[in-house]
Design a protein around this nucleic acid. Structure first.
Lengths: 168, 168
DNA sequence: CGCCATTAGATTGTGTGCAATTTAATTGTG
DNA sequence: CACAATTAAATTGCACACAATCTAATGGCG
């Protein structure tokens, strides 16, 4: 059906599911999710919540805005997620006195303490991948380059972001 | 704070957000989502719906079960998604006469026709990544290997799947 | 000072993902 | 044949993602 006269693969060949890099990416991301789900159940965290805790353990208290920049998430995702972390007693949300628009996220003692129990997670995840540290590092670099390229392309593609492109 | 005596990095270093391969993966996956969202809006498809259509264009009619195996999705995700594709007039759902438990998904004429308009998508996506075909192929292979390793680890990790492991 | 554009979060609505449960059909076994 | 175990989908409940909208606070600028 495709490539009737054996030239370079036709456009049709690129519609094959197993050719889609995004599918491999998506599948790998969800496979990670399954492994994390098991490991994080003990800590009472979901995977996105774990990422938020990583950012807080690393930077201490953070405004929602900055947290979102670190995690590439907007307030539509973070607001309810942080509310659940607050309900779990891991963080506190405090209006900034200087700028009342801003909400700063603080770790509670319980949230700080949880870090000790999270220390074993990365090693167990690394073991689950079967990759050594160099391979992981290499793959991470490629993925980061890919993400940067896609971000640029998304801006160029979307006329509504023209300001953002030209302004920077 | 970490690695006080300059040995190999301590466990604490591996809690850094920028060390998490899964975060890079997740970010790349979502960055792809943004680019696809723009390209697929014309076709009236979301990205997961596009993957379903790819599988159907490739294999013709498929039972939900098989579709789920191709896409690594269960009925909890596929049932409502397929209902939306049916509402959009792209697929039909038909009970199998031989096995009434099984539902087969067929392309409508409209669904088949949509393929023509999707042909340009992969090239535009490839362009957005800035990667050449070899790089994409290489990355895909690594990701597939990673996913396979994680799947294995997830089975070993989860006692409730012990049967599935030992049976095969 | 007064007013408008901007900014930070929260909210709303839609669409996945996935665990757990439910329902209906089929299969295996005595 | 009867009946328990299995299987395929659908359903339910929860938690992201993300676009779009809303609200409140801030920052210019005349």
């Amino acid at each position: 059906m495709s490539s009737p006269n054996r030239e370079a693969p036709s456009e049709a060949d690129y519609l094959r599911l197993d050719q889609q890099i995004c599918f491999s990416l998506n599948a790998a991301s969800r496979a990670f999710g399954s492994v994390y789900r098991v490991l994080l159940k003990d800590l009472g965290l979901t995977y996105p919540q774990y990422l938020v805790m990583l950012a807080l353990w690393e930077h201490g208290e953070l405004p929602v805005k900055t947290l979102g920049e670190h995690l590439r998430l907007d307030s539509g995702t973070l607001s309810p997620l942080l509310k659940r972390l607050e309900a779990a007693g891991l963080v506190r949300r405090e209006r900034n006195a200087q700028d009342e628009r801003s909400v700063h996220i603080h770790l509670t003692d319980e949230g700080t303490a949880l870090r000790e129990r999270a220390l074993a997670v990365p090693r167990r995840i690394a073991a689950a991948t079967g990759f050594d540290l160099d391979e992981i590092s290499n793959l991470r670099a490629r993925l980061n380059r890919l993400t940067a390229a896609l971000d640029t392309a998304a801006l160029e593609e979307n006329p509504s972001c023209a300001d953002a492109v030209s302004e920077k």
